[in-house]
């Protein structure tokens, strides 16, 4: 299969991308729907975009979501990467087993249980009643596990001799981590950060209990409007988010910021 083309596999891959993007295409299409209720196609219009840009509430909610996601991604990626690496090095053992379970727990805890527990926790111990920071802290608490699992999967298969070699060549532990381990882990760290972003940007249930006055995120705003139907305005903002993300990614990729995972040096 060296460098060869595998036609059936390529066709299959395109099929999967089609599946992934079908809802997005529908979403974008229906942002031009001339119907306030948006159940069926009623004709083409551009009116929802100006409506959106005048709607301070939607844009405010989007801005809050972005702030929350930025803090949550940074926090959970750093903490999760360290954890993943540490656990990979422990390779089981009693401490590892406990840590394993602790990491598993946030993933298996029903969101509403976690949401209410955090609501009580912040209200009782800190007298806090919802803020961007409180939402972000909660997001980090449930995102760490995902980052950890992804990073550990790669770290486990990392050859410890590479780091040892670097140490033998006189690197400090920190510099060995920074210059050797981290670059090797980077694809997993990147993947973990992406998952953390998606989780934070998406979360509804836990967020709904952590949001206070003036800190409603975009999913919260949208979900609260379900009762009266989602208008194409919401499709319009989703379209803009996807477009902006796509453009940023394409540009980053063009200028080489998004590199494929480097082949791992073999010893």
């Amino acid at each position: 299969m060296r460098k060869g083309r595998n036609i059936p596999l390529t066709v299959y891959a395109l099929g999967v991308y089609l599946f992934l993007f079908t809802p997005i295409v529908v979403l974008v299409l229906f942002s031009f729907n001339d119907s306030p209720r948006n159940f069926m196609w009623r004709g083409f219009t551009l009116e929802w975009y100006p409506v959106l840009f005048k709607d301070a509430r939607v844009l405010g909610a989007l801005w809050i979501s972005i702030q929350v996601a930025a803090i949550a991604v940074a926090g959970s990626t750093v903490l999760g990467t360290l954890l993943g690496l540490g656990l990979a090095r422990l390779r089981g053992g009693f401490g590892g087993g406990i840590a394993d379970t602790l990491i598993l727990l946030p993933m298996v805890t029903p969101e509403v249980v976690m949401g209410i527990s955090l609501l009580l926790f912040f209200a009782l111990l800190f007298d806090a009643h919802g803020s961007i920071l409180q939402i972000a802290i909660s997001h980090i608490a449930f995102s760490i596990s995902y980052v950890t699992i992804v990073v550990r999967a790669r770290a486990v298969s990392l050859d410890p001799r590479i780091v040892e070699a670097a140490r033998d060549l006189g690197s400090s532990p920190l510099s060995a981590f920074w210059h050797v381990t981290l670059p090797l882990l980077m694809p997993a760290v990147g993947a973990g950060a992406m998952i953390a972003f998606a989780l934070s940007f998406d979360d509804l249930i836990i967020t709904s209990f952590q949001a206070g006055p003036g800190s409603s995120t975009l999913p919260l705003y949208i979900y609260s409007r379900i009762r009266f139907g989602v208008t194409p305005e919401i499709n319009a903002i989703s379209t803009i988010i996807v477009s902006v993300t796509a453009v940023i990614i394409l540009v980053a990729w063009r200028i080489g910021a998004v590199k494929p995972a480097k082949p791992q040096p073999t010893i």
């Binding site: 991308y17 809802p23 997005i24 979403l27 998406d202 975009l218 989703s238």
Partner: peptide, 19 residues
């Protein structure tokens, strides 16, 4: 590779509810 991987994630950077 990097681009293809990010394309996998792209649909998930909209909102879950709206998807």
């Amino acid at each position: 590779k990097g681009l293809l991987l990010i394309l996998v994630m792209l649909p998930f950077w909209t909102s879950w509810v709206i998807r």
